[in-house]
């Protein structure tokens, strides 16, 4: 082995990538060659210095705070491409089946037979990955399957029969697609960080809080389960105000009111407290719970300033 050959192998030697026979040959050469010994020393030094980041200052806590502050203002993350990829084969099969079904039984596809379904909402699934984009491509045909296709998701569902609710299942992700009314399924997509219009609360489109402290912004609004929606507000210190609205606590608002006769003051921790009240909208009662790290009096004021806003 000559110096040139040794030189070519020095890096592998230093990094332990050489097979034993080459390693031995190289060692033998190195024992007798001062030049190559020096190149070896330089290579080892370079390796150690390239790993050395001691000259780079570290980022402080303020950096993290700035990032967290900025993401609070960002729109929700985009759809989950990675999951979609996994479903491509499923989707292709589904699309083929639907096509065949249409061709055999319902052909030709006539857009004028679209019913008045405007959109389908996929409620937040437990993993929080549900989404659905534009509504305008939702097409349907009586008795056929609804098929919504866009770049990010696909859903399919049997057409609702008279008097039945629309229900659908998504193949675009693992979320549940919630059903709507028989006349018009008017829903919206629900994803983390975006305002939702839960069908279970069809009359509520938003909540208004008159006394919300100035630096709190809406961070997430999501449906926790079919009975509860949650709005989370945070400020730059990452303090949070959580407002949870539950399904009509009782059919009769009075009954609910009696049960909740006194605002429940619950000690969640030494600082965080929850207050609950019942608010009505369109003859329905909703249980509204607010949780925050604020003095009880301030929280109570906030709670009383919450207004459910109708569609």
């Amino acid at each position: 082995m000559n110096c040139k050959e040794v030189n070519e192998l020095l890096l592998d030697y230093v990094e332990g990538n050489l097979p034993p026979y080459l390693k031995n040959e190289l060692k033998t050469h190195l024992e007798n060659c001062i030049r190559c010994q020096k190149i070896l020393a330089l290579t080892e030094l370079e390796n150690s210095l390239l790993k050395d980041t001691s000259d780079i200052p570290e980022l402080d806590e303020e950096f993290t705070r700035q990032v967290m502050k900025k993401i609070a203002l960002l729109p929700a993350p985009l759809p989950q491409r990675a999951v979609i990829k996994k479903f491509i084969s499923t989707l292709a099969a589904l699309a083929a089946c639907l096509l065949v079904a249409f061709m055999l039984h319902y052909a030709p596809w006539t857009p004028d037979k679209e019913n008045n379904i405007k959109d389908v909402r996929m409620a937040m699934d437990p993993k929080g990955t549900a989404y659905l984009s534009k509504a305008d491509s939702l097409k349907s045909q009586e008795g056929a399957k609804y098929f919504h296709e866009d770049t990010s998701s696909k859903i399919s569902a049997p057409a609702p029969k008279e008097g039945e609710a629309f229900s659908a299942a998504s193949t675009g992700d693992n979320s549940t697609v919630y059903s709507g009314g028989k006349e018009e399924v008017k829903m919206s997509s629900a994803k983390s960080g975006q305002k939702i219009n839960p069908e279970n609360y069809s009359v509520i489109t938003d909540i208004k809080i008159a006394g919300l402290p100035a630096d709190y912004v809406l961070q997430t609004s999501r449906q926790i389960d079919e009975n509860r929606v949650q709005y989370v507000y945070t400020n730059h210190n990452q303090n949070t105000i959580t407002i949870e609205i539950s399904l009509p606590y009782a059919e009769d608002k009075m009954a609910a009111k009696n049960f909740m006769s006194a605002d429940t003051l619950q000690e969640k921790s030494s600082q965080t407290i929850s207050l609950t009240d019942v608010k009505s909208l369109e003859d329905k009662a909703y249980k509204v719970t607010i949780t925050a790290d604020l003095p009880a009096e301030e929280l109570n004021q906030l709670l009383s300033s919450i207004e459910l806003v109708k569609n």
Binding site: P77, R81, V83, K85
Partner: peptide, 13 residues
């Protein structure tokens, strides 16, 4: 990090 956040749903878990 802002990119990470907005693309977090694209990450294959």
């Amino acid at each position: 990090f802002l990119n990470i956040y907005t693309k977090i749903n694209q990450f294959d878990s």
